[in-house]
């Protein structure tokens, strides 16, 4: 089968698994989420009409009448129409609106800092591997210890040092609250200023993994025959390092992107809490604390889709940078 078709099929399967998991979890676990939700809704002055109850039952299961298959089908139908229900914690806002408001913050913050961390980690890893036996070797254990630090704890320390004590950065938030969100310079500047510390947290915590992986592959690649050929060809060292050794060594790092991205996303959810960042991680926690099951599920789905999308993009890129992958799967 074609490489791209195979990849597309896999991601469809993964998407289906995530959607189904989302459907099954509330039905499998103890407790009656629908009743809790209805009670909450009432407290907030929401109308407890049968239609609202029906919507929640489709999402979370009833334990009553109606077959599971039917519920599953209408659940899928609702998803396709983008109907994720009504949020209780942000009543009367719809779940999809809550997500739409917070998602851009997270995508920009986590996306940019992951990219930065990947580039820095892979670049440094290549250099450390190439210059093996020099003082650069000590970067490896140092960054690995950093990546064993819990994200949120590092965030706490950074806030304590750089915000509370030194006052260099704001304590929390995604922008200065006196400003109105919009595309003007003042607001963007404030958003960037508020984003520096969360981004720094993510970069510091995740760079070690990239660096170590790249460095180890670099060391392996350097003893390959094609690097010897390149040296015999009298190429400049920088060219051998980048075009021959690093070009090959980076492949596993790209292929292993999925594993690392999962860590980063998980870490940044908790990081958002520390900074009260207006992203999707904070919203997820808000949902959990308020038993806002509809919002919880919506956010889990969106996070999963985003991670799947990022992985799909990386896989497609992998097909481009390693021609062997495309041809191999064409044979099998």
């Amino acid at each position: 089968m074609n490489y791209y078709l195979r990849k597309a099929a896999f991601y469809l399967a993964a998407l289906w698994a995530a959607v189904t998991l989302n459907f099954v979890i509330p039905r499998m676990l103890p407790g009656n989420p629908v009743d809790i939700l209805m009670a909450k809704l009432q407290q907030r002055g929401g109308t407890v009409d049968p239609a609202a109850r029906k919507a929640y039952e489709t999402l979370l299961g009833t334990g009553g009448d109606g077959s599971v298959v039917q519920e599953y089908l209408s659940y899928l139908g609702n998803l396709l129409r983008g109907e994720l229900g009504v949020s209780v914690s942000a009543f009367p806002a719809k779940v999809s609106d809550v997500i739409a408001d917070s998602l851009p913050w997270t995508i920009v913050l986590v996306g940019l800092s992951t990219l930065l961390s990947f580039l820095l980690g892979v670049g440094l890893g290549a250099l450390v591997g190439w210059k093996r036996g020099t003082w650069l070797d000590s970067l490896v254990p140092a960054t690995t210890v950093l990546s064993a630090v819990p994200y949120f704890w590092l965030a706490l320390i950074l806030v304590a040092l750089l915000s509370t004590s030194l006052g260099w950065f704001p304590l929390n938030g995604g922008y200065d609250v006196v400003l109105d969100p919009g595309w003007d310079g003042e607001f963007l500047g404030s958003a960037i200023y508020h984003g520096i510390l969360p981004a720094l947290t993510i970069v510091i915590s995740s760079i070690g993994g990239w660096l170590l992986g790249m460095r180890n592959m670099m060391v392996s690649a350097m003893s390959e025959d094609y690097v010897l050929t390149a040296r015999a060809k009298g190429l400049k060292n920088s060219r051998i390092m980048i075009r021959y050794a690093a070009r090959n060594a980076v492949l596993p790092s790209v292929a292993g992107f999925a594993i690392s991205l999962g860590f980063v996303v998980s870490g940044s959810i908790v990081t958002e809490l520390v900074f009260s960042y207006p992203g999707i991680g904070s919203k997820l926690l808000q949902a959990v604390q308020n038993n806002d099951y509809a919002l919880m599920q919506g956010i889990f789905l969106v996070i999963t889709i985003a991670v799947l999308g990022a992985n799909l993009a990386v896989d497609l890129l992998y097909g481009l940078i390693d021609a062997r992958t495309r041809d191999r799967s064409a044979v099998s």
Binding site: F10, Y11, A13, A14, A17, A18, L21, N22, I25, P26, L29, P30, G31, P33, A258, I259, L261, G262, V265, S266, G267, I269, V270, L284, L285, A287, V288, N291, Y293, M296, Q297, I299, F300, I303, T304, V307, L308, N311
Partner: peptide, 27 residues
Amino acid sequence: SVFSNVMLVIPGLPLVIVIAGFVPPDQ
């Protein structure tokens, strides 16, 4: 292998949070 790969790309902690959110604290 497909199952492992699917489990791998579904982000872990958000899933754990959702599961933990559904389970009442006393359980």
